[in-house]
Design a protein around this nucleic acid. Structure first.
Length: 416
RNA sequence: GGAGAGAUGGCCGAGUGGACGAAGGCGCAUGACUCGAAAUCAUGUUUUGCCGUAAGGCAAACGGGGGUUCGAAUCCCCCUCUCUCCGCCA
């Protein structure tokens, strides 16, 4: 929601804030905006007068008639303008600060409660009690939490031998499907990004506590490749024929998990650094919901190829990310933890990020318009790794590798 | 890290204090000419904010920020990025 939207639809804006469980005050914003506009009018009026004076001075200089009196007048005016300019700037800053906390609109198809819209695959049955990944990983010597803790403390993981290979294979497999089959362009971006990029994508200011910040440099570690991918085209203007644009990137993702001390403490369901392949699309507005469904299919296809049972959840407004207008979460079943793990979140952010990052499209009719930007995980790995080894474990403690990964695993079909 | 050069509209490129939102060229759009096209000619061709139902009006912007001045693309300071050279390094 931008300022104009709020100004034209104050009641709707308030309703959206309520439904999303946000707390920013629309009335306060409108109040500041009104003062701001009045001040701008005053400023522009004075500037006009000042300009007239300046032009008069220039003319008189040419005609060599005296100008001292005019200069004194202009000087006074200039002082006054400087004052009012400062006021305008102050109001604008104040307003900007508030607007930074205004979330995106909600798409009409979003329900009030989280809704499961699809189930795929059968939950695996076992003749024995399936073990969780932290046990399996230790027995197979492919995950080492103790040594990871030596390096980085709790909530970090370290893959070893075939485990490291499996993680790497998963990454490559996902990238390859997106690149070769779905037409995404691979990007390998910096993992440290400038503050402005986080603001543009919607991570800042809201999630400041969730991110790692560099002490001596103006960077944050990215919590997702959504940040660099969305910002690739910062301050750019597409030609309509160049859209849609599909990007994918593998990056490590860093999250402080500040608000989740008691949650998912065992294993690697929730860790500070994890691998993820991300998808981002830039589209014209009228295509974005179609592209949103397509992106979801792209992600689902990976899970089907990996033979992991999953369900698709359409999120309610209070569960959606700040920048998203509509989000699907995809969750896989992990037999050892006996839980559905979120492995992808697929969002249409409409023009929210495009407005912040100033990314537009020159339409065929020559008009300028903000693009729509979508993002989705495809996929988030340690959790895929978890589901894979937990679901594919055998009575003897070994783990079968799905067929699609064999070539990536150098022919290994089983970890034992 | 040190030294130097640069950043102007969709692109190239001029502009060292007032007549510059910005010459000239290219590109693009529309029109004329043409059976049609090319060439040629003519006209047009940035964005943002504020006011206005609209037509339109006003203001701002020459990498970003600050300063000098009645007046800044032009002078001064800081920053960013690009290029060249030196140092260092996977």
């Amino acid at each position: 929601m931008d300022l104009k939207f709020i100004r034209n639809n104050p009641e709707l804006a308030k309703q959206i804030i309520r439904r999303r469980n946000e707390s920013i005050s629309i009335d306060e914003i409108l109040q500041i905006d009104e003062v701001r506009r009045k001040t701008i009018q005053m400023r522009d009026q004075l500037r006009m007068e000042h300009r007239r004076l300046t032009e008069e001075i220039a003319q008189r200089k040419v005609q060599q008639t005296p100008v001292e009196e005019l200069i004194i007048q202009a000087k006074e005016l200039a002082d006054k303008i400087r004052q009012i300019e400062a006021e305008v700037k102050q109001k604008e800053t104040e307003l900007e600060k508030k607007l930074a906390y205004v979330p995106n609109v909600i798409h009409e198809s979003v329900p009030n409660e989280d809704t499961i819209v699809k189930n795929w695959g059968d939950i695996p049955k076992f003749s024995f009690k399936p073990r969780p990944h932290w046990e399996l990983g230790e027995t197979l010597d492919i995950i080492d939490f103790k040594r990871a803790a030596k390096l980085a403390g709790s909530r970090f993981v370290l893959f070893k031998g075939p485990g490291a290979l499996l993680e790497r294979s998963l990454i490559n497999f996902c990238l390859d499907v997106h690149i070769k089959k779905h037409g995404y362009i691979e990007i390998n971006p910096p993992s440290l990004n400038l503050e402005i990029c986080f603001y543009n994508s919607g991570a800042l200011p809201k999630l400041a506590d969730e991110m790692y910040r560099c002490a001596n440099d103006p960077f944050y570690l990215i919590p997702t490749a959504e940040v660099p991918l969305v910002n690739l085209h910062q301050n750019e203007c597409f030609a309509e024929k160049d859209l849609p644009k599909y990007y994918t990137a593998y990056t490590p993702c860093f999250r402080r998990e500040a608000g989740s001390y008691g949650k998912d403490v065992r294993g690697m369901i929730r860790i500070h650094q994890f691998d993820k392949v991300e998808l981002v699309k830039f589209t014209v507005p009228e295509q974005s919901y179609h592209e949103h469904e397509k992106m979801r299919e792209d992600v689902e296809e990976l899970l089907q190829l990996l033979e992991l049972p999953y369900r698709v959840k359409l999120l309610s407004p209070s569960e959606m990310a700040f920048q998203s207008a509509k989000t699907y979460d995809i969750e896989v079943w992990a037999a050892g933890c006996e839980a559905w793990l979120e492995v992808s979140s697929i969002s249409n952010c409409e023009n929210f990020q495009a407005k912040r990052a100033n990314i537009r499209v020159r339409r065929n009719n020559n008009e300028l318009e903000y693009v729509h930007i979508l993002n989705g995980s495809g996929l988030a790995f340690p959790r895929i790794f978890i589901a894979l080894i937990e679901n594919n474990q055998q009575p003897d403690g070994s783990v079968l590798i799905p067929k699609v990964l064999w070539s990536y695993m150098g022919g290994i079909t089983k970890i034992e």
